[in-house]
């Protein structure tokens, strides 16, 4: 590998210098990550990246705008609202866990010092259910996606501002793990998330234009025509892992929660705009 050092350094300099330098602070990571995409796609406003591939693919964008006129996620938002308002068997509602109301997106993911783990909105919802004697919901799709669709809808416009608390080094460690996961080659195809969604963002993988990772976490859950239903962010992680012929982790596994933590921090400053539709 030593003899190939130059090639490695060349790649690092061009593409992902900040992310591969371990000592870079998260603040530097954010700047370098965002600047990379802003330079790669000049003319695309930062917040526009939240629309995924439709921010950079004019043709696909036309179809998408037409679809958004009667958003396919709307019935699921309605279902989620009913869930939010329907009392559990014990008479309480979700509001007993989320007194601020359903507009919770800005609070997640967050580092929970007591539990020493990243808590996502999906996890907090199931915690609430369990605390109230209800069964947890499945994490990839179904009712949980409907409830989070409603909550995301109510949260639209909130600005992402995920913090790494300085008083707990384990929070930074979780961030680092998420970052390393994102940069690591995996699966039989031996590719990292960064290879497709940073280095080749905007290029075409067969007929798919690869979306930039800036914007990857803003719009969930998503109604995907290919799925014919809603899915959560971790469902998509699973899909991309499988595409690499890598064994996927479970939705809400530590790996995916840390990945979400890292990716959401990389998206700090963008607005939450879920739920969304994708082809």
């Amino acid at each position: 590998m030593v003899k190939n050092g130059l090639a490695v350094i060349g790649f690092i300099c061009i593409v992902l210098l900040p992310l591969t330098v371990l000592s870079a602070s998260p603040q530097e990571d954010i700047q370098n990550f965002q600047n990379y995409f802003l330079k790669l796609f000049p003319g695309v406003e930062k917040d526009e990246f939240g629309n995924g591939v439709y921010a950079i693919d004019a043709v696909a964008r036309q179809n998408w705008i037409a679809i958004e006129e009667f958003p396919p996620y709307e019935p699921f938002v309605d279902e989620g609202k009913v869930m939010w308002e329907t009392p559990f068997a014990n008479g309480k509602t979700y509001a007993s866990c989320f007194p601020e109301g359903p507009a919770q997106r800005k609070n997640y993911p967050r580092w929970d010092k007591q539990r020493s783990m990243v808590v996502t909105m999906e996890l907090a919802i199931n915690d609430c259910r369990i605390a109230n004697g209800e069964k947890p919901l499945k994490y990839a799709k179904g009712q949980l996606a409907s409830l989070t669709a409603y909550m995301a809808y109510e949260s639209r416009g909130q600005i992402i501002d995920v913090k790494i608390p300085l008083d707990d080094p384990k929070a930074l460690a979780a961030y680092e793990q998420g970052k390393q996961f994102w940069l690591k080659r995996m699966g039989q195809l031996d590719l990292s998330c960064a290879h497709c969604h940073a280095r080749n963002a905007g290029r075409q993988l067969r007929s798919d234009v690869l979306s930039p990772a800036l914007g990857h976490v803003t719009g969930w859950p998503v109604y995907r025509s290919k799925w014919g239903e809603m899915g959560t962010l971790h469902r998509r992680f699973t899909g991309c892992n499988e595409q690499l012929k890598a064994r996927p982790f479970d939705p809400q596994s530590e790996q995916y929660r840390n990945l979400e933590y890292f990716l959401t921090i990389m998206n700090n400053g963008l607005s939450f705009n879920g739920p969304s539709s994708r082809k």
């Binding site: 590998m1 090639a7 031996d190 280095r199």
Partner: peptide, 18 residues
């Protein structure tokens, strides 16, 4: 392809038995 270029994004069809 990584033998010639370690930073390649071409999957190793033989090495990984794809």
């Amino acid at each position: 392809a990584a033998v010639a270029n370690p930073e390649t994004i071409m999957p190793p069809f033989g090495r990984n038995r794809i």
